[in-house]
């Protein structure tokens, strides 16, 4: 098995466990850093649990992508709140099962556990965003 990078990031990728800067409160996921990207300190990083939802801050619709992607594909910058207080994490994420016409800035998106890609046929699962299932009732 040649998947060490994904093994190390599995808590972030499969459970949305983020790291919060002990100095300025910036939340990073899935990257794990020594230096805080925002304040430049070498802080203690606290574990934070993110919720499986977020708010779309901006998005584009990709029309031409390699075969393993569904196109047209909305990709978005999404703020994911943490459980409890503290800043949301800002992430770049793929949408799934969502008509681009249904995506708008400010919308609430559900984060769903899906296959991102595979390694030699072994699926690597993480989160994608989608229009909430309950909205389709």
């Amino acid at each position: 098995m040649h998947e060490p990078p994904f093994v190390r990031d599995r808590a972030a990728n499969e459970r949305l466990e983020g790291k919060e800067c002990g100095s300025c409160g910036y939340v990073t996921i899935p990257e794990r850093r020594e230096v805080c990207k925002r304040c430049g300190e070498y802080p203690d990083w606290n574990d934070v649990q993110l919720e499986e939802r977020g708010t779309v801050q901006s998005y584009v619709v990709q029309q031409r992508l390699p075969g393993e992607f569904e196109t047209p594909l909305p990709v978005a910058v999404v703020d994911i709140p943490q459980e409890g207080n503290g800043e949301p994490a800002r992430v770049y994420g793929l949408f799934t099962e969502t008509d681009p016409d249904d995506v708008e800035i400010g919308m609430e998106a559900e984060a769903d556990f899906r296959t991102m890609f595979d390694i030699d046929g072994l699926p690597v699962n993480s989160f994608k965003f989608k229009r909430p299932r309950g909205d389709r009732l």
């Binding site: 569904e70 799934t96 769903d112 899906r114 296959t115 699962n125 994608k128």
Partner: peptide, 13 residues
């Protein structure tokens, strides 16, 4: 199933 769903993701949901 959607193209990005499998038995593990269904089970997790």
């Amino acid at each position: 199933p959607a193209h990005d769903e499998n038995i593990v993701t269904l089970g997790v949901q």
